[in-house]
Nucleic acid binder design. Structure first.
Lengths: 110, 110
DNA sequence: TTTTCTTGCTTTGCTGAGCAAGGTATAATA
DNA sequence: TATTATACCTTGCTCAGCAAAGCAAGAAAA
């Protein structure tokens, strides 16, 4: 199903923080993981992801480290800082609250 | 719980369309209904709602009609057009798809 | 009676998220 | 050799939500 861009606002941040709550990942990997896990519902764009990662790094939520892959390709791995972990938990709770409130409102005309 | 503005993007449209799927309502009433039903999770702002209503009316999703209340006050009631009803159903499905996809992704580190 | 609060609709201008569209560079594959 | 996939980055646009303001009338309180 296609959906309007506007629905993604805010979800991208939660998505990044959630993925990195599990393990360190590099950008391209996050794009693929989001697509895979959501059965292609989420097709995050590079122009969305990379600037978001940079912004979150500047904000002190993430730290980045270059690593070589087996193939010799350089990848920029991101992981959460302590501040980032707290932020992830906060954002996650916010999402769940909004989501629950929306379900409550939509339920009326199910 | 307070939440970041960004999470509301997109939800306001679904909210309006959903409320009007039940019955015609006027703007101020929608503000109160959203707050009441969501247990004060949603505090829609006037600067958000009214421009959205105007935009949706221009787009042909809503039609407006002034009516007098018992107290003699004029209220602008909005209702869905046929196009609006189709749009409401589409937006609702989109929201549910996004919501489900997010839950699938977030579930990993519950 | 005058002030204040609540109801009810409207508008202007700002901010900031997502994205299209472009770019660079290397490894694998045809 | 040419193409595809991997992997990163950036500029400039659009558009949604909102703060902040205004207007007007009825209700309540002082």
């Amino acid at each position: 199903m296609d959906y309007d861009r506007e629905f993604l606002t805010g979800t991208v941040g939660v998505l990044i923080l959630s993925l990195l709550s599990e393990r360190a990942m590099y950008g391209y990997e996050m794009l693929q993981e989001a697509e895979r896990r959501s059965a292609s519902q989420f097709l995050m764009k590079e122009g969305t992801l990379y600037p978001a990662l940079h912004q979150m790094e500047r904000a002190g939520f993430l730290k980045a480290a270059w690593r070589e892959s087996d193939s010799g390709r350089a990848r920029k791995y991101y992981s959460l800082t302590a501040k980032g972990r707290r932020h992830a938990e906060s954002k996650r709770r916010q999402w769940e609250a909004i989501s629950a409130a929306m379900r409550a409102i939509l339920a009326a005309n199910g």
